[in-house]
Amino acid sequence: MEVLACKGLRKVYGDLEVLKGIDFSINKGETKVIIGPSGSGKSTFLRIMGLLEPPTEGKVFFEGKDVYGENLNLNMIRAKIGFVFQDPSLFRHLTALENVKLGLKVVLKMSDEEATKKAMETLKLVRMDEWADYYPAQLSGGQQQRVGIARALAMDPDIILFDEPTASLDIELTWEVIDVMKDLARRGITMLVVTHEIGFAKEVADEIVLMDSGRIVESGPPEQMLKSPKTERAREFLGRLLGGV
C-alpha cells in the first residue's frame, strides 16, 4: 500500500528553482534512502513531503489522498508523518520523557498516564529509558537524536522522514543512532532517509534514490545502485562516496 507519494513536484525560492519536477512514491514497510550532493534539494524535498512547507507546483499524496487538493486537516496528517531533523531540535524546557509525551498529549489527546506509558516504551526502543528525566542540555548529541527519533516514533506514524540524522554527530554517536534506525527498519517501520551512511543503505534499504540539481537522477535496489549504476552522474557520485577519487 502506498503511504506517501508526489507527482510533478516543483519548488522555487525567489529565482532559484530547487526542485524541478519530482515523481516519487514509497509503500508501507519500505525503507528508501536518498543520497545526493549538497544543495541538490534533498532537505527541501523532505520538508515538502513532511508537509512542513507547500510545493510551488505538483501534488503530494498521503495514503492516496491529494493533501493540498482536498480540504484536509494538515495537522492531523503531520501527526502521522514523523520527522527527525539533522539537529535534534528537542524542546529545551522539557525532559527526554516530556519531549516524547508532548505530542501524545497535545495532538493525540492521550491521558497523562497513557502518554507516560507509551513514551517510556518508545524511549526503551531507542535505548534511552534510563535518561528519561534528563534535559536536552544534559544529553550528548547522539542521545538527543535518539530522543528525537522516539518523539517521532511514539506518535505511531505511518512513515518517518529522516533528514541526515547523523550529519552533526561524530563516528561513535553516529553508530548509536544508525543502530536504532536499522532496528526500526527491521521492525517494518516505513522510512524515508536522507543519509550518506552507505552501510545503513546496504543493509536495510529497499531502494537508493540519487538526487542531483533538483531531480531524481536514478534509483534502484542497493546492490544494483552501488555496483552498477546506469547513469554517468550516479557512477561519478557513488564512486566518490564509496571512497574512490
Binding site: N75, G82, F83, D87, V106, R151, A152
Partner: peptide
C-alpha cells in the same frame, strides 16, 4: 531565543500555532 527549529519540530508533530505558543514558546 526559542529557536526556529523547535517551531518546525512542533509543526511536524501536528501541533497548531496556538498549541506551539502555549507548550513550546511561552514556557521557555
Amino acid at each position: 531565543a526559542v529557536f526556529k527549529d523547535q517551531l518546525i519540530a512542533a509543526k511536524s508533530l501536528g501541533m497548531t500555532f496556538p498549541q506551539t505558543l502555549r507548550h513550546v514558546v511561552l514556557p521557555q
